[in-house]
Amino acid sequence: MNSTVILETKIAMDTLLSDLKQLTKVGLSLSVVFSSVAGYLLAVDVINYTTLLLLALGGFFMVGASNSFNQVIEKDTDALMLRTKNRPLPTGRMSVNFAMFIAVLFTILGLAILYSINPKTALFGAISIFLYTSVYTPLKSVTPLTVFVGAIPGAIPFMLGWVAATNQFGIEAGMLFMIQFFWQFPHFWAIGWLQFEEYKKAGFNMLPMNTKDKSAVKQIIFYTVIMILVSIAPVLKVSGDFYIYPLTAVIVALLGIIMLYYGVKLHKSEQNTDARKLMLASVLYITIVQIIYVVDKFLH
């Protein structure tokens, strides 16, 4: 009897842990932490490991909160899509009240931790949660422009690190914001292309003009070009203390051209396989570019 109870308890705990990971999207949260840490390292000469740890924790809770609120709001539409129907809320494995409790708890923890670094960092954290939850999520079923709104909270983490390190939002933080802001259009539209039929079931408008055609890919290509230009702009020393070597700019541009190549390929083929390659190339791009910037900075 006892061993059965222990086994059942273990299964219940494992399920809860797995559901919490899904609710807060741990993978996505960790990628945001990665961006924040990169932004921090770009801003400092001497690393304060306490601040770095607080930034990572605060950023993690901030994104976890946004994702939890998002899944509470989209519980019914999540049930309609193959990709999301097995999430904890549509399946009923987790109650809405418990999910809301987690969302509020993560908001309070995240903002309190970020505030302990400096008030500006907490302010941007709060803006991120608010825009993602209260503007981006409801607009998904209203207009394709929702991607523009969603790109704002999505671009905050990279600059959040700079603000945490310097306690100011200047040209440098603005530049980091712009890089991640423009990157999100090809990234999200590639996902929007792949999930177009699924999103349609839920009534979401995630592609430009809500059409899966060459005109959508033209937008992807246009924003990829802007992203490349913004990413190499620091070589011109127009962004204060944040600048890169010419060789670094060349490497960054080449990485961007890989994305552009898949964008052009998608324009020709209009096939999901090329959209997937573009999406993967975009994830690779933002990860490697942030590492390259940090390496470049420590070579100065």
Rank of each mutant, 00 (worst) to 15 (best):
I102W: 02
A65D: 12
F98Q: 07
A56C: 04
Q71K: 06
L105S: 13
I108R: 03
M94S: 09
T77I: 09
I102N: 04
K85W: 00
N97R: 11
A65C: 13
N97H: 12
A112N: 12
R93C: 05
G92V: 05
L57G: 11
L55C: 04
K85G: 01
A79D: 06
L89S: 14
I102S: 04
S66H: 07
L52G: 09
L105N: 08
L109E: 11
M81T: 00
A79I: 03
L89T: 02
R93H: 15
L89W: 02
L111M: 12
A79R: 07
L109M: 13
G58H: 09
N67M: 07
L82S: 04
S68D: 13
F98S: 08
A56F: 05
K75T: 03
T91V: 15
D78A: 00
L55M: 05
S68I: 03
L52S: 13
M81A: 01
M81I: 00
T77P: 02
I73P: 04
A103K: 07
G110I: 10
G92E: 02
R83I: 01
R87K: 13
F98T: 14
S68H: 07
S95L: 06
L105H: 03
F60A: 02
V63H: 08
M94N: 12
M100K: 14
V46R: 11
A103L: 08
F106A: 12
L111Q: 13
M81S: 01
A65Q: 09
I113G: 11
I47P: 10
L82Y: 05
T84I: 01
L111V: 13
M62V: 12
K75F: 01
L109S: 15
T77Q: 02
P88I: 06
F98P: 02
M100R: 08
Q71H: 15
L54V: 12
F98A: 14
S68F: 12
M100Q: 11
M94I: 04
L80P: 07
L52A: 07
D76F: 00
L80G: 03
P90W: 00
F106P: 05
I73Q: 12
L80T: 03
R87Q: 04
F101Q: 14
A103R: 03
N97E: 15
A99M: 06
D78G: 01
F101R: 13
V46M: 11
A112D: 15
G64A: 07
F101N: 08
L89R: 05
L105Q: 10
A79P: 12
T107S: 15
L109I: 11
V104T: 07
T50D: 14
A112Y: 15
T77W: 00
I108Q: 06
N48C: 07
F69Q: 11
V63I: 14
I102C: 08
M94E: 04
L54W: 08
L53G: 13
V72H: 08
N67T: 07
A103E: 09
G110N: 06
T51R: 10
A103I: 07
F60T: 09
D78L: 00
A65T: 14
R83E: 00
F61S: 08
V72P: 05
K75A: 05
I102K: 04
T107C: 10
T50P: 09
Y49A: 03
R93Y: 07
L52R: 04
L52T: 08
V72N: 04
